Computed example of a mutant assay.
Amino acid sequence: MALPLASVQLYSLAKEFSADMSGSLDKLAAIGLRHVEAFDFVSRPAEIRAALDASGLSSPTGHAPLLSDELWTPDGAIPTPAPEVVFEAAATIGMKTVIDPFVAPERWLTADGVADIAERLNRAGEKAAEFGLTVGYHNHAQEFVADVDGQSAYARFVELTDERVELELDLFWALTGGQDVPELVRSLGARLAAVHVKDGVVPTSNPWAPGAGDFGSDTLDQRHAGTGEVPLADALRANDAIRYAVIEYDNAPGDVFADVAASYAFLREGGFVA
């Protein structure tokens, strides 16, 4: 089976990308990367496409809010545009899959809440198909707090979504949510289109559990892939359907380009990516 393609989530270098889009992409290309995962792209798709083309990069996947009135991030909220606007922008950039990156923790605590999330994403998938696109969902750790009919809210969500809805599993956050990460990767089968390759010291408690208090990404002790607590190697070997191995740091430990290069070296030297 074909190995996944290496990519990097541009949220990892949000400040650098905002300050110098072309220069940042050129640095990623110099590392050896050929793919990125765009973030906050809807307001400037033509500009991003031109910069990607100039750097010899593509963005087969991208993050945009599809299921919430606004997208929460640890560093501020981003308003949610209409789905048609999101998909038109994604098509301009040349994406294949638009992935919703975050749904608020309280919406994962009840069976009705999970069903609503799944129904909304199924509808978004129908609209995306009109643009030649698919949709997906990227987890954090709130999806693993509550049980729904004897299974995690995340497992219930997977059952309720259409087969064409793709999954992007953040391995760091799945472990934070108490999951057996390689087993979860295996269980998702052909639905698992991508994983976020992220490592570090896992928080001692789920920061999105009820009563956990405020959370900011600057509190995370994240490290280069292969040097933290996440069983990345076992997870990457657990499912041969994965198409993209996406490097991400919520809190890069040093120079972000050096950090990306170190994680890319782990993927390449371990034989985990094509």
Rank of each mutant, 00 (worst) to 15 (best):
L169C: 12
L175I: 11
A155Y: 01
R164Q: 12
V165N: 03
T204A: 14
R191G: 05
L184M: 12
W173S: 09
D199N: 10
A155L: 09
F157N: 05
S205V: 12
V197Q: 06
E163M: 03
E183S: 15
G200E: 07
R186H: 13
A194T: 11
V165Q: 04
H196F: 13
R164V: 07
L160N: 08
S152D: 08
E183G: 13
V165K: 01
D170N: 14
P182F: 06
R191K: 15
R156Y: 13
V158H: 01
T161M: 14
L184Q: 04
G150C: 13
G177L: 00
S152F: 00
S152V: 04
R156D: 12
D170S: 11
A174F: 06
G189H: 10
D147V: 04
E163P: 05
R186V: 01
V201L: 06
D162W: 03
T204H: 07
V148A: 11
T161Q: 09
L175T: 06
R156Q: 12
D149P: 04
D180V: 07
A174W: 07
L160S: 11
G177C: 03
L169P: 07
T176M: 05
T176Y: 03
D199Y: 09
S152H: 03
P182Q: 10
G178P: 01
V181T: 11
A174N: 07
L169E: 10
H196T: 09
G178L: 00
G178I: 02
Y154K: 05
G177N: 00
Q179F: 04
D162C: 00
A153S: 14
V197H: 03
E159R: 10
L184W: 00
V201R: 10
V197A: 08
V158S: 02
E183M: 04
E183I: 00
E183Y: 02
S152T: 15
S205W: 05
V202T: 15
L175G: 07
V195Y: 02
V158K: 00
P203W: 08
G177H: 01
E183N: 12
S205E: 15
E183A: 15
G200N: 11
L192K: 13
L167K: 07
R186A: 15
P203E: 08
K198P: 04
Q151W: 00
D149G: 10
R186S: 15
V195Q: 03
L175Y: 09
F172K: 03
L160R: 13
F172A: 07
R191S: 09
D147T: 15
L171N: 06
L184V: 04
A190D: 14
V195R: 01
S205A: 15
R186F: 01
D162V: 02
D162Q: 12
V195C: 08
A174L: 12
Q179M: 09
P203H: 10
T161V: 14
S152A: 07
V148F: 06
V165I: 03
V148Y: 07
A193T: 11
D149H: 10
P182L: 07
P203A: 14
V195G: 02
K198V: 01
G177D: 00
D147N: 15
L192F: 13
Q151G: 01
L169W: 04
G189D: 00
V202E: 08
V197D: 06
V195K: 02
Y154H: 15
L171P: 02
L184P: 00
E163R: 09
E166M: 09
V202L: 08
G178T: 03
K198L: 06
P182N: 09
A193G: 13
